[in-house]
Design a protein around this nucleic acid. Structure first.
Length: 442
RNA sequence: UCCGCAGUAGCUCAAUGGCAGAGCAUUCGGCUGUUAACCGAAGGGUUGUAGGUUCGAGUCCUACCUGCGGAGCCA
């Protein structure tokens, strides 16, 4: 099948090889033929390029082999790179020779439409499609931006454990693990408490890893297993958290705009949506948010009248954030709907110094955080009040016995953030292998 | 867990209670610039499962299973 002597190139870098002969190693994306001319489109993970093979310029046996190749056949081709307006992508390769590694028949995912269930059952193959490729490239950039932002801002990565002895917040449903002698363990739902320890050690610290929620949630914003980044700062307040949130989110948006323009185009995402994400973000007191919801109800935009004291539902969040093209930061929630470790407003004890950052366009809460309680006595009361096992929290209480200071932090869901950046419907497409209520495979 | 919608060829979908269909995919043939290529032909079905109504059920009824959308809860 001809020798592949030309230097290897990647499709994303073809512009540097115009006029040269190169070898591309990849997979067949699509094949069109017209009797004596073939147009194999090759995909190599960095892009897609159209090749041209003329019957009278290549070996007859190669012609026969290429003609019958099915979608996703693995092959390497050698040919000369040429700029051509007719080709999708702008460059074309005049194929001289090729080597087929794997001949494929009946690739399940065709260039036509498919349903979600079918695609999710074939997630391991679906990842190869243009749209999924683009989404995961954006995810990669979101993750990289988060790490770069925090690293450049003096944060130290100090990851929290996945196995934990107790619920962090005593609210969500946990996955139980039966392994540790005489004691039940759970998969983490937040690295929050551990971050308070690392923040006291490093000043500014963050953890970044998978998180598990056993809730029977079936919405476009929920995964059973998702990734969360949680920065925590010693000697910091609610206000510092809000400032850090808006700085980080705008940094992420700028990085995505900067390095993923091609992918945003593939996803048909309007860049103006991301360009709008610049500080300052609107800040709104919970009381004012409730007033706004009441106004919405009076005007007929909200079906039910919101009661002060509750947490916002998805329609409430969408209504509140609907007035802005930037994330909306709602702060000073009623303490009752927030975690036990939240610091209280010294002026109004019933309010927690917490903030939810609501993304525009109905993407909901992408960040939740706030200032933590510093008083040992207060936390002991809260643990008793929430009927949490005090022994499991002794180490946490040590943080208040030995050098307790005001400190604050937040958690950001990577998938929600990525879905928002991409402008896509559902978070399940923003993680390579999503785990949902009804999905454990592939 | 609750509410709503759906399940027919490998995939996406049609079919008034009356012969089980189309496009794509697959196989074969044609075409020297195709852009989800096109043209011609062929193969492909226990209509989610179990029961019921009916002369007759993909279609109507009951239960169950699976999926989707939403709620609650959350990032």
């Amino acid at each position: 099948m001809g020798t592949l002597t030309a230097p290897r190139a990647f499709i994303s870098g073809l512009d540097e090889h115009v006029g040269q002969e190169v070898t591309i190693k990849g997979w067949l994306y699509n094949l069109r033929s017209s009797g004596k001319i073939l147009f194999p489109q090759l995909r190599d993970g960095t892009g897609v390029v159209q090749c041209v093979a003329l019957k009278n310029t290549i070996a007859p046996e190669l012609w026969e082999a290429l003609k019958g190749l099915g979608q996703e056949s693995a092959l390497a081709i050698t040919g000369t790179v040429r700029a051509d307006e007719r080709a999708p992508g702008g460059y074309e390769i005049d194929l001289r020779t090729a080597e087929v590694f794997n001949e494929v028949r009946d690739y399940p995912i065709t260039p036509k439409e498919h349903g979600t269930e079918f695609l999710m059952d074939h997630r391991h193959l679906w990842l190869r499609s243009r749209r999924q490729h683009a989404i995961l490239k954006v995810r990669h950039t979101v993750v990289k931006a988060v790490r770069d932002f925090l690293d450049n801002d003096g944060f130290t990565l100090a990851d929290s454990p996945i196995f934990t002895p107790a619920a962090c917040e005593g609210t969500s449903t946990l996955f139980e693990v039966d392994y540790f002698d005489g004691e039940k363990a759970y998969l983490t739902q937040s690295g929050q408490l551990y971050n308070e320890a690392t923040a006291a050690a490093f000043g500014k610290a963050y953890c970044f890893g998978p998180t598990f929620r056993a809730e029977k949630s079936k919405t476009r914003r929920h995964l059973t297993e998702f990734w969360m980044v949680e920065p925590e700062m010693a000697y910091a307040t609610l206000d510092d958290v809000m400032t850090l949130s808006e700085r980080m989110l705008s940094y992420i948006a700028a990085r995505v705009l900067d390095s993923r323009a091609e992918e945003l185009k593939t996803l048909e995402r309007d860049p103006a949506r991301l360009e709008a994400i610049v500080p300052p973000f609107p800040r709104m007191h919970y009381d004012d948010a409730v007033k706004l919801l009441h106004k919405g109800h009076d005007e007929g935009a909200m079906e039910t009248r919101f009661e002060w004291g509750g947490d916002f539902g998805a329609p409430d969040e969408t209504y509140l954030s609907g007035n802005y093209d930037k994330p909306l930061m709602v702060h000073h929630y009623p303490a009752e709907v927030k975690a036990f470790y939240m610091a209280r407003d010294p002026e109004r004890n019933e309010l927690a110094l917490g903030v939810d950052v609501l993304a525009p366009e109905g993407y909901g809460e992408v960040i939740g955080g706030g200032e933590r309680a510093t008083s040992l006595q207060f936390l002991e009361e809260q643990i008793a009040l929430h009927q949490l096992p005090k022994e499991a929290f002794e180490w946490y209480l040590d943080l208040r016995r030995y050098g307790s200071v005001p400190h604050a932090g937040f958690g950001m869901g990577i998938e929600r953030c990525t879905a928002w950046m991409c402008g896509i419907e559902h978070v399940r497409e923003t993680i390579p292998f999503p785990r949902l209520m009804n999905r454990l495979r592939p």
